[in-house]
Design a binder for these strands. Structure first.
Lengths: 229, 229
DNA sequence: ATAATAGTGTCTATTAGACAATATCCT
DNA sequence: AGGATATTGTCTAATAGACACTATTAT
């Protein structure tokens, strides 16, 4: 039996799209319009396009960006997107064997309101992690979400992902709020500030023009020293 | 067009199997016996078994353990195995679209000599990272290896993976040698010792009976406080 | 005795965290 | 003026890293 003749699974990409709104970590779910799980909330995603013969189709990252745009309307270029795990348990899709490569996406709060239902999606909605309707989640998406959340929590300290969840220019308090929303603890403003200023000294962050006016004392604003779109 | 009717990719698992021998980080490659890349060195691995209808086949982790045993003869139960990335670039297999879910495995040096060629493999061999025959590597396996190596280097400090690469009972110097082999730097014995003793204090590691006789001064030996097979 | 490695002690610099105090800005 | 937040200062404990030193054992 040749390799080409083995039965094959379907392969999909699923997206766990995070943002921080109202000082809370939220993720974007879509309401399914078709069976299975019609009417349930699911992660945005879809099948990877696999060509035939000479054209072998799109890459995984490409598929993820395409689904992001198709189903949520978010501008793929401005969104941080990273693959984190493949889920392939037998039976996770009742129709057939489906292996899903999962990505997490980080969307700045400025962009979050622009998510709209597209493709074959009935609606989109930002959910707090705690308010997810556990009983109405499609497939094994609850498990995928749990893995994604623990992954970004673990990466919070060792990477600069928090900077992807903040407006283009931001105050120290705003970045602190993102950290607090993600890991659920509160940070001392003075101590957080010192760590932050080290990042400025390291050249990762720089002062930006303008100030943040919140109704109280004004704060300096900063920006990530890296081309953002 | 129904979901079931889309063209599908083949899905494989590939294993990057590490051990530490002669104070050097090594990985296990197999020599291919069939085209494509017949005669080349490749990562152990193979296609995921996908059933039909009611039986949807084996899980990804299951497939990884199966291939580990089939192709290398290593005892799957005693090997640390973790998925780290899916590779799916179009064209990475000339025959057809193949998406490969990659795992890294950590094998204690006691077990490493028991690797033998099995299945449709012509030979197995432990390679140092630096002596890999770059020109004779199959598919995109060089890239997969690079990602795996950088991943375990990054995890070295935040996890206890080094403990998977050491004999059942080990001296502090042996664990230090593993760290040095993986990240390529040397550690001050005194400072490394202090960090190590904190792990003992935390209950992660405990003293083991016996001593390590190296020809010089004898060293105490320790063991990971966790059932090992 | 010597060489080599195991193991101890000490000093400095960096960092996290707790917390007090001051500065600025809006109402 | 008063409340809230930004910002600065100070103290303590934990840790990494450099490095000198002592202890043990094979040869």
């Amino acid at each position: 039996m040749k390799a080409q003749d083995y039965p094959r699974p379907a392969v999909a990409v699923d997206l766990v799209i995070f943002t921080v709104l109202d000082a809370d970590l939220k993720l974007l779910m879509v309401r399914r319009r078709e069976d299975p799980f019609s009417g349930c909330w699911a992660l945005p995603g879809g099948f990877v396009r696999v060509g035939a013969a000479a054209d072998q189709g799109e890459d995984l990252d490409e598929a993820a960006r395409r689904e992001l745009t198709e189903e949520t309307g978010l501008p793929a270029r401005s969104v941080f997107l990273e693959q984190f795990h493949a889920f392939g348990r037998a039976g996770r899709d009742p129709r057939m064997r489906v292996i899903s490569v999962a990505y997490y996406a980080l969307v700045s709060p400025e962009l979050a309101p622009f998510a709209v239902a597209g493709g074959d999606v009935a609606a989109v909605r930002w959910f707090s992690l705690s308010e997810l309707p556990a009983a109405e989640l499609a497939f094994d998406h609850a498990e995928i979400i749990a893995v994604a959340a623990s992954r970004i929590r673990r990466s919070l300290d060792s990477t600069s992902i928090a900077l992807e969840l903040v407006p283009r220019s931001f105050s120290i308090a705003e970045l602190r709020a993102v950290h607090e929303a993600i890991d659920g603890v509160t940070h001392d403003p003075a101590n957080f500030r010192r760590r932050f200023l080290r990042m400025v000294a390291d050249g990762l962050i720089e002062e930006a023009p303008g100030q943040r006016v919140t109704g109280k004392r004004r704060a300096k604003v900063y920006r990530f020293r890296r081309p953002r779109t």
